[in-house]
Design a protein around this nucleic acid. Structure first.
Length: 744
RNA sequence: GCGAGAGUGGCGAAACUGGCAGACGCACCAGACUUAGGAUCUGGCGCCGCAAGGCUUAGGGGUUCGAGUCCCCUCUCUCGCACCA
């Protein structure tokens, strides 16, 4: 940009526009001069332009990747023109089940496959002309990277935020292996078609739920796409409600086996079993005609009557075998009566206790009070098992005795309580407060906040990931690997496939698996699970500026200078998990005193998706755009500019094969304008006016990612400047070249 | 089912806080130049109509001097979550 060609002396032959030659020339120059490698320690006015690093698939760079990267690159180039020192790093999210499955399919070790894929990606990204600082390239599979991923695990462990518990996984009894949810299709294993079962394995979790409130509250202050913030809010899913205590009747019969929740300290003896339920509709308690426990609920054993025991046992066993996916998606209600009754604390009436798999152990207390009159699921269940349905909420049009029809009545606005004793005629919200207060006064309820967010399971019974840095010693128990012994290297084993042993392939590698205890030097075994890919990507932005440092995960001074990230652009497919986990890890590191900010991304924008001729691109359709082909035919500049022109960046667009010609024509005309511009001189008033309008528009559009309209504005200016057979002046063309430069 | 977003020419799309709907581009039509080319340049191009004129932003209603834009209802599509009590 700095050596804009001077006007040709009259008579010079015009030079033809040859994108391949020009792009090669400038890319070589950038590399030789380090144009895109800023001085991180001293650069003034830092601007960290981050894009989501890709998973290096074997197919090479997808046009969707390039769309995302180019949008970020343009934003970065614009900031550079505005006087910022711009840092735009690049890396590879190369661990994970995706790579591993592909490696298994083609029969090549991922350790061999991944570097090849990375080379292809790097070449393609370079060819697209991105202003990447390659000195800071990283890959999550590099021991110098995952050493620090393991370090992060240890920090969470130290804070008490990493813990182990048994959790269900999908298990294929034929392949004898753990399956990810996406490998279960319609309840069956995607490879062999065998019906998948649930199995319980000890797995590592991060206590992200401890941070639920903060993760939610902080969203208000972030400059992020609204759609992304909304998705996060819904995912965290805060709901306020009450836990209500129902006392199980006739417990003396069962008291012998009771290990139950009663026995508040100071009381003489356990005299009753209690079931705690969570509800957001305490106002409907007079309509609670039965209780439902999840099949996994700890009280199931103790409350079941002898007559019902066999039936309950069978139901629980069936539920335990069912795979996770269909358990959560089947809508047909099923359940079984326990033979036990509890007292509804509002009515004093006995109500039956059932077990049903539509109640999930992971949410709330794993037990509900069923209000079939006013909850659709309870209604369905009550009709299936012929349980009483009572109206306790009435709208304007209802009388106290209007029967509930074919569906539950779930409205609340303008409704009043009925059949609810002295709470009758209160509005729903008044009733909720009055009833909860009354129950609380009798120690029968407490106010609680629940989140649907679950703790983050980071264990993977797989090979291709960073080993979890934990050792099990017979004397010392669970021992974290000392930080100075990191990384725990992933051994290069030949047979990395999951097999019928039921544990990670690493368990088969005896010399790795057997180790000595770091504390007592006695014999010990290594944790054989590796960690989730999302942990790799939850902190990579912290690593980039310091990627050349081996002694620290991230340098203090550089981190202070460059973070939090000024601009992050990525796809909304990561709106929930990746961004939430990154925020969580950042908060934990903040609380542990490693960094002085708790939100990693000041500004986040989600880009849209590219379709082709109106249809989604997919390998099976055979309509995937290969960037290399287009760059060869049209040049990277035309391709980039076209990608940015085909629709609003945050919404995506339709890639039409013929469309690129319009953008190419624009660049051809720009090239010719430079060749034609031989005289300096005053701008024609009409051209000058248009120029200033264009500068204003482009300058406003680029920062808000309005790339398509910025390009349209520059095209308009071109039309004005060259209208008729007019040959523009140097001073008319020069500013246009500058405006185009972030794009091409 | 719940949540988010979107419906504008033959196509991709513009229209900032309500103010000339269709910028810019593709495709198409006509013309100029011509070493006949998938080059360049000029003009045309929402729909109906020879025209005058009328109609037009998924459909219906409303607010307003004025609505693609705001409000209500209906329909369609895309994406995300899916028994979260």
């Amino acid at each position: 940009m700095t050596d804009f060609a001077p006007p040709h002396p009259a008579g010079d032959a015009p030079v033809a526009y040859d994108p391949a030659a020009i792009e090669r020339k400038w890319q070589a120059r950038w590399q030789a001069e380090g144009t895109n490698s800023p001085d991180l320690a001293n650069g003034a006015n830092p601007f960290y332009a981050l894009m989501m690093f890709p998973y290096p698939s074997a197919e090479g760079l997808h046009v969707g990747n390039l769309f995302a990267f180019t949008g970020n690159d343009i934003h970065g180039r614009f900031q550079r023109l505005q006087g910022h020192t711009v840092f735009q790093p690049f890396g590879f999210d190369a661990f994970g089940i995706h790579s591993e499955n592909y490696a298994i399919k083609v029969g090549i070790h991922p350790g061999e496959l991944i570097p090849r894929n990375i080379d292809t990606f790097r070449r393609q990204v370079q060819r697209a002309g991105l202003m990447v600082d390659w000195r800071h390239e990283l890959s999550t599979t590099d021991p110098s990277y995952y050493k620090w991923t393991q370090w992060i695990f240890l920090q969470l462990y130290k804070q008490g935020l990493a813990y182990k518990k048994a959790a269900a996984v999908n298990w294929c009894p034929f392949d004898k292996t753990v399956l990810a949810n996406e490998q279960v299709i319609g309840g069956a294993c995607e490879r062999c078609g065998t019906m998948v079962e649930q199995r319980f394995l000890e797995q590592w979790f991060f206590r992200i739920t401890d941070y639920a409130g903060r993760l939610l509250a902080n969203l208000d202050g972030l400059d992020w796409s609204d759609s992304t913030k909304t998705a996060q809010r819904n995912w965290i899913g805060r709901s306020e409600g009450a836990e209500i205590i129902f006392v199980v009747q006739d417990v003396m019969e069962f008291a012998g086996s009771a290990t139950a929740s009663a026995g508040r300290s100071g009381e003489v003896a356990v005299t009753a079993l209690e079931v705690r339920v969570f509800t957001t509709r305490a106002d409907t308690i007079f309509g609670a005609t039965y209780l439902v426990l999840s099949p996994e609920h700890p009280l199931v054993e103790s409350i079941t009557s002898d007559e019902q025991r066999e039936e309950v046992k069978q139901y629980v066993a069936k539920a335990a075998k069912q795979d996770l996916v269909s358990r959560k998606t089947t809508k047909e209600k099923s359940g079984v009566f326990t033979g036990a009754y509890a007292t509804n604390p509002a009515t004093g009436e006995p109500i039956p206790i059932w077990i049903a798999d539509y109640v999930l152990m992971e949410y709330g207390t794993g037990a509900i009070m069923a209000v079939p009159g006013h909850d659709e699921r309870d209604h369905e269940f009550a009709r299936a098992y012929d349980l009483p349905i009572v109206r306790v909420i009435a709208g304007e049009e209802h009388s106290t005795d209007t029967p509930i029809g074919d569906a539950a009545f779930t409205e609340t606005d303008g409704c009043r309580l009925v059949n609810s004793g002295r709470f009758n005629e209160l509005s729903v919200s008044e009733g909720m407060i009055a009833i909860t207060t009354e129950l609380a006064a009798h120690h029968a309820a407490i106010l609680v906040v629940n989140y649907r967010l679950h703790d983050w399971c980071i264990s993977r019974q797989r090979y291709w990931g960073p080993p979890i840095p934990i050792v099990y010693c017979d004397n010392c128990g669970v021992v974290p690997v000392p930080e100075d012994q990191l990384p725990v290297l992933l051994p290069a084993i030949e047979d990395f496939r999951p097999d019928d042993s039921g544990v990670s392939p690493l368990a088969r590698h005896a010399e790795w698996y057997h180790t000595t205890c770091p504390t007592c030097d006695g014999p010990a075994r290594r944790e054989t699970d590796v960690s989730d890919t999302f942990l790799d990507s939850a902190w990579y932005f912290l690593r980039y500026p310091s990627s050349d440092r081996d002694d620290v995960p991230f340098d203090d001074a550089l981190t202070k200078k460059w973070l939090p990230v000024h601009s992050y652009i990525g796809g909304n497919e990561h709106a929930v998990l990746h961004l939430l986990y990154s925020r969580f890890v950042t908060m934990v590191l903040h609380d542990a005193g490693f960094i002085d900010f708790e939100e990693p991304f000041t500004r986040f924008r989600a880009h849209g998706m590219i379709v082709r001729e109106g249809a989604k691109m997919s390998k099976s359709r055979g309509n995937v755009v290969n960037p290399d082909d287009y760059i060869t035919e049209w040049g990277a500049d035309a391709f980039r500019t076209y990608l940015m022109f085909l629709g609003p960046y945050e919404e995506g667009g339709d890639f039409q094969d013929r469309g690129i010609s319009g953008v190419k024509r624009f660049l051809d005309r720009l090239w010719r304008s430079v060749q034609d511009a031989r005289t300096e001189g005053d701008l024609e008033p009409e051209v000058q006016r248009k120029l200033h309008q264009t500068i204003k528009k482009v300058g406003e559009d680029i920062p808000r990612l309005g790339y398509n309209t910025a390009i349209a504005a520059m095209m308009e200016y071109m039309n004005t400047m060259r209208s008729g057979e007019r040959k523009p002046h140097v001073d008319e063309v020069r500013p246009l070249v500058q405006m185009v430069s972030p794009f091409a």
